[in-house]
């Protein structure tokens, strides 16, 4: 197993209808690494995450999780892999008809033979880890945005996964709350030797938590390296992103916009 990446993408192309979002991306993520996928809005980073967890099917190429192609895996293989993954969605995606405790207990009750009393204890431990002790009986609608994200982390960690995915963990939060979420990820990184993939557009957050950064721009990977390597990058789009420079003029926007519609035709 040693040396084999836990996640790998090979010439991965993903399309929505005729529009190609990812134009043949390649990368590898080794065991235990925290990788931040950085990119602007509409860069394709969320599509990349959705493809990694098997919610989108690649048009061509492959995405391998523990050596298994998610695009071609059977239902059973996919289910087995997903039990080893935890995903914290952007808005939390907690099941609204269940309490916070029931949400976290859900994967445990469905996929393990644990006694309900044991599950209850585990739920309490998971909630404590994310700083939400005592919120078991709250409904998701009673939680703030940051608390929902924390509860979603607790649910993602419920099955003690080997890979944790985070979709925009600090988006829409105030700086203090966002810093709290970053801390939480750092603590998880220290406590468990798990692989983490964090999709974000927050530079500060990326620099704080990442072992390695993959920069996605317009469906291409334009940088893949450690933070010092990224900071030393001469790639104009990477520099623009790091230095927070807006696009030169509106014409580019318009061209990009038109390209969006014409890409499929070429």
């Amino acid at each position: 197993m040693a040396g084999q990446p836990i996640i790998a993408a090979r010439d991965l192309r993903v399309r929505y209808g005729d529009r190609e979002i990812l134009h043949g991306v390649n990368f590898e993520i080794p065991h235990g690494e925290t990788v931040v996928v950085l990119g602007g809005s509409g860069s394709g980073k969320s599509t990349l995450l959705r493809t990694m967890v098997g919610l989108e099917r690649p048009h061509s190429g492959e995405v391998l999780i523990k050596g298994i192609d998610m695009g071609k895996a059977s239902r059973e293989e996919k289910a087995a892999l997903r039990r080893k993954m935890g995903i914290a969605f952007q808005g939390g995606a907690l099941i609204g008809s269940m309490t916070v405790g029931e949400n976290i207990a859900l994967p445990l009750l469905e996929h393990s033979a644990l006694e309900p009393s044991t599950v209850e204890v585990m739920v309490r431990i998971k909630l404590e880890q994310v700083g939400l002790s005592g919120f078991e009986n709250f409904n998701p609608s009673e939680l703030s945005g940051g608390m929902k994200k924390r509860a979603a982390f607790a649910r993602a960690m419920a099955m003690d996964p080997e890979i944790l995915f985070f979709d925009e963990p600090s988006a829409g939060l105030d700086p203090i709350m966002a810093a709290g979420i970053d801390n939480l990820i750092l603590n998880m990184k220290k406590a468990y030797a798990i692989t983490m993939v964090v999709v974000t557009h927050e530079l500060a957050s990326a620099f704080l938590i990442a072992d390695r950064v993959i920069v996605v721009d317009k469906g291409h990977i334009i940088a893949n390296g450690s933070i010092p390597e990224l900071q030393a990058s001469e790639h104009p789009r990477v520099r623009q992103f790091l230095d927070r420079v807006p696009d030169s003029d509106h014409d580019d926007d318009a061209v990009d916009h038109l390209r969006m519609y014409t890409e499929g035709i070429r």
């Binding site: 098997g54 919610l55 995903i87 969605f89 907690l94 609204g96 994967p107 469905e110």
Partner: peptide, 20 residues
């Protein structure tokens, strides 16, 4: 309405990724 809202709020995706 229930299932539609769950689709919009990614709850259906969450179920799928929990192998449910």
């Amino acid at each position: 309405a229930e299932i539609g809202t769950m689709r919009v709020t990614e709850e259906l995706d969450a179920l799928e990724t929990m192998a449910l």
